[in-house]
């Protein structure tokens, strides 16, 4: 555990110095802060649009950060040869992959927490009270980030940074519209082979939509606790499973 934590800290330091992290965080913070300029709407509508826009920024910004940082960590270490002194020590390959993932997750969490804090302050100033559902919605956004970071880290063990970023982005898009779009495609498919292919892709894709609690936050809807527990468990299982596959592949890889 100490070895994983050391690698995670190293990765956190490395990631927090990257330009992409600063630029994306600043961009998302600008959009969040700029959402107060929507003064043409009435107060109730303004608050709903503010929550919608800020939550979208947190979800999308977190996902893009996880893709950008997760897909470059391991390939950069291999390219710059900083990986060799690490694996020369008694550190398992799986520990290295998990450490890299944790480093990425911690870095993105820092950015997401800053965005969520600004968002919380804005909501407080508009509705003169704290939204109790906001921390929960942010926590589930972080779980989505964890799944995407795990995917990016696992894919980066077999592909170059550019390819792994594109593939993870495609998985992110498809995972976000999985049940609404791919579910319909399976029903519409006429041939058996097409149906089988769609089914395999459908069940392999992560169900990222379930981490999105934006609608519940905007409309102050109640979400069943049993459902939230299931989603949290699912997020943990999916991230762990993807990291397990990534570690298996990286353990056999010649570097």
């Amino acid at each position: 555990m100490t070895k994983i934590w050391t690698i995670a800290k190293m990765s956190l330091l490395e990631n927090s110095r990257k330009q992409v992290f600063h630029v994306l965080c600043l961009l998302m913070l600008t959009v969040i802060a700029g959402s107060v300029l929507l003064s043409i709407f009435t107060d109730g509508t303004k608050l709903k649009i503010l929550k919608d826009l800020c939550m979208t920024c947190i979800l999308f910004g977190g996902a893009v950060l996880a893709i950008a940082l997760g897909s470059t960590g391991i390939p950069n270490d291999v390219e710059q040869r900083t990986l060799y002194p690490i694996i020369a020590r008694p550190v398992g390959r799986a520990q290295y992959v998990v450490g890299k993932f944790l480093g990425t997750l911690l870095t993105v969490s820092m950015g997401v927490l800053v965005m969520a804090t600004v968002f919380g302050v804005l909501v407080y100033s508009f509705q003169h009270g704290f939204d109790k559902f906001l921390p929960l919605a942010t926590l589930f956004a972080l779980m989505e980030v964890a799944v995407i970071a795990a995917l990016a880290t696992a894919i980066s063990t077999i592909a170059t940074p550019a390819v792994s970023a594109v593939v993870t982005f495609l998985v992110y898009i498809c995972g976000t519209i999985k049940i609404g779009y791919f579910g319909g495609l399976i029903e519409q498919a006429t041939s058996g082979a097409a149906k089988a292919v769609y089914s395999v892709v459908y069940h392999a894709l992560p169900n990222l939509e379930c981490f999105n609690l934006k609608t519940a936050l905007v409309h102050s809807d109640k979400v069943p606790i049993a459902y939230l527990v299931q989603v949290a468990l699912y997020g943990l299982c999916y991230a762990a499973f993807v990291l397990f596959l990534g570690s298996l592949n990286f353990a056999r890889k010649e570097v």
């Binding site: 049940i179 609404g180 579910g183 169900n207 939509e209 379930c210 999105n212 934006k214 609608t215 519940a216 809807d221 979400v223 069943p224 459902y227 299931q230």
Partner: peptide, 11 residues
């Protein structure tokens, strides 16, 4: 759209 907790397909 977005009320996925009310949809049994997701669970």
């Amino acid at each position: 759209l977005g009320h996925h907790w009310a949809d049994a397909v997701y669970t």
